[in-house]
């Protein structure tokens, strides 16, 4: 901050009814207020960044020791045997997140577009349900899917895990899509209609197309969020020590495997849990970075 000379003499101070000294006093107070507020904001940023970086550094330092090729290619070994990896859990997580996306993305995007374009009471109802679903604790989602799918099917399964994760994704994607579609100016829709484009095409190829980067970003962030969920998988996908055996059987996932290893009494398993955590954090971070990338539109200038 450069210090400009206080209170220029050419100002018509008498008209404002204050003396030069009073004006200088005010300006000095404002400069101090400015410094204090700036200081508080920088401090807040540091407070936000400290947990993030300490977490990343701690997970990185603890996890990197167990990181080798085997971790990505081998199945877990029994306690006491050296080596082994979490390849099945990594593949399992990808399958579960893929299932969740296959169910959650179409439902969420279509519901979101509907909410943004409709003024009906049905839309109000759907929006309310989405907001409630968004607030449901993830463990409750897991229990509900346990009752709805695991009990009737008489087995834990990848399907149940995928549905549980989809139920968490749907409100996130729906509400974000609605927001993004609403951000598109009405003028664009009208301009397309005025060209003689039918309403559904104008919605799809102009309005949704314009909102697409934001919609994709929301999808990626929702994927990153469910990739790290543990609670909804505990009673649905369960876990599995082997490669996946079809979608109707229990399947391993990174969060649940990390959980099991972390609560075990064996130090070498704790090491594996840290490495698993590092891999999971890396996957989520990469997804987030990809989301930012998709969020840039074709014509964004730097």
């Amino acid at each position: 901050m450069s210090q400009e000379p206080l209170a220029a003499t050419h100002l018509p101070l008498s008209r404002w009814g204050i003396s030069r000294r009073q004006l200088e006093g005010r300006i000095r107070r404002r400069r101090w207020a400015d410094r204090i507020i700036r200081g508080l904001m920088v401090a807040s940023v540091v407070v936000v960044l400290i947990p993030l970086f300490s977490l990343l550094i701690y997970v990185g330092r603890s996890g990197i020791q167990g990181l080798d090729l085997a971790f990505f290619t081998q199945l877990p070994k029994p306690v006491g045997m050296p080596g082994g990896g979490m390849a099945n859990a990594i593949v399992g997580s990808l399958i579960l997140v893929g299932l969740a996306a296959a169910i959650g993305v179409p439902v969420g995007v279509m519901a979101g577009v509907f909410l943004a374009r409709s003024t009906s009471r049905l839309a109000d109802g759907v929006r309310f349900v989405a907001q409630v679903l968004n607030g449901v604790p993830s463990i409750v989602v897991g229990l509900a899917v346990y009752g709805l799918m695991v009990v009737p099917m008489q087995t834990y399964s990848a399907w149940a895990g995928g549905v549980a994760l989809a139920l968490i994704m749907i409100p996130l994607v729906t509400l974000n899509t609605e927001e993004m579609v609403r951000l598109v100016p009405r003028d664009l829709n009208e301009a397309a209609l005025a060209l003689g484009v039918p309403a559904w095409l104008a919605t799809l190829r102009v309005v949704v197309r314009t909102a697409l980067p934001g919609i994709l970003t929301g999808i990626m962030l929702a994927l990153a969020r469910v990739a790290g969920e543990t609670a909804p998988l505990l009673f649905t996908a369960l876990n599995n020590a082997f490669w996946h055996q079809g979608l109707s059987n229990p399947i391993a996932s990174l969060p649940v495997t990390i959980y099991n290893y972390a609560i075990s009494p064996y130090p070498e398993w704790h090491q594996k849990a840290w490495t698993g955590a590092l891999v999971l954090v890396a996957m989520v971070l990469i997804t987030n970075v990809l989301a930012r990338f998709f969020g840039r539109s074709r014509y964004d200038r730097r």
Partner: peptide, 8 residues
């Protein structure tokens, strides 16, 4: 009234 080019 306002120009409405399609931004995409």
């Amino acid at each position: 009234q306002r120009p409405t080019p399609f931004p995409t």
